[in-house]
Design a protein around this nucleic acid. Structure first.
Length: 278
DNA sequence: CAGCGTGTTGAGGA
DNA sequence: TTCCTCAACACGCT
């Protein structure tokens, strides 16, 4: 599921769910390795008796704000899914990793096919969590996501633009799908050196990123794989993808075939005609 | 059977 | 030291 718009969709749903303002009465951990900085027992003690105040987001992290200044950081990585329901999704029991039981009979269920996801517990202001501190400005939430900041970041690197915008320590929230979509909309070849972007390119990059993310959130994100469980809410933004996953299909602008190349180990789709090498 | 993957980290080499 | 590449994580789909 998860890049910025998909994570935003998850928290939008959870913020309207019966989990809000409910006390946690217990936990069950089926896959221990998801818990990164705590044990099964300490996790249970940490959460029990606390109320869920709200679900927040920074980059691709879900931040569950609890009473007594506690936070639970959830990262979905490739295929994590977080739902608030009364009952277990019986078609997906095999991938159930964590259950957080609430006083009203609902639960937060965390499912993860590949079990790459992570849970961290943290007491204090969520901005002080070490992982958040090392992250660049959030592409939707941070005032720091601006021309001056990006100009500085892009100027001081020899890397290509796609690698930089995927680097969460530089910018938080952009993943492999939206990186390709953003660069297509900017008409910039993903192999272009980041330091070749001028002010006009950077201004355009910011407005394109903002509008693509707004639209993707409106359509509840992109759902790519057909095997997602029935309990999953599916997004619709995949209808609007111009390049991602469209290898050898005609470009929506010029009809030339979309090409597929590897950049920094990630599959990359782009139009060689529309996207200029800077 | 082999290759691939919405993400991130860490090891090892240049 | 710094930068870059690649494997690894675990599993299911094509």
């Amino acid at each position: 599921m998860p890049e910025l718009p998909e994570v935003q969709t998850v928290i939008n749903i959870l913020n309207k769910s019966p989990a809000i303002d409910k006390k946690i009465i217990g936990t069950r951990v089926f896959i221990k390795k998801i818990l990164k900085n705590t044990s099964v027992n300490k996790f249970d003690i940490f959460l029990k008796k606390e109320k869920i105040i709200s679900f927040n987001r920074y980059g691709k992290y879900i931040i569950i704000k609890l009473t007594n200044n506690k936070n639970l950081f959830v990262h979905l990585r490739m295929e994590g899914k977080l739902f608030c329901t009364k009952d277990i999704d019986k078609t997906n029991v095999k991938h159930l990793c964590i259950q957080i039981m609430l006083e009203n009979g609902f639960n937060l269920f965390y499912y993860d096919t590949r079990m790459f996801g992570t849970f961290h517990i943290f007491v204090g202001n969520s901005n002080d969590f070490y992982s958040i501190k090392s992250m660049g400005p959030d592409a939707m939430l941070s005032k720091k996501f601006n021309v001056d900041y990006l100009k500085n970041i892009f100027k001081h690197t020899k890397k290509n633009i796609k690698t930089i915008i995927l680097d969460q320590t530089k910018i938080s929230g952009i993943g492999n799908i939206y990186a390709d979509e953003i660069l297509f909309a900017c008409k910039i070849n993903p192999f272009s050196k980041a330091n070749a972007l001028d002010i006009k390119n950077i201004k355009n990059f910011i407005s394109v990123t903002t509008s693509i993310f707004k639209k993707a959130i409106l359509y509840k994100g992109t759902t790519i794989f057909s095997y997602m469980s029935s309990a999953n809410h599916t997004g619709n933004y995949q209808k609007y993808l111009n390049v991602y996953g469209r290898n050898n299909e005609p470009c929506n602008i010029c009809r030339k075939k979309i090409v597929y190349r590897k950049i920094n180990g990630r599959g990359t789709y782009f139009c060689e005609k529309c996207q200029k090498l800077l």
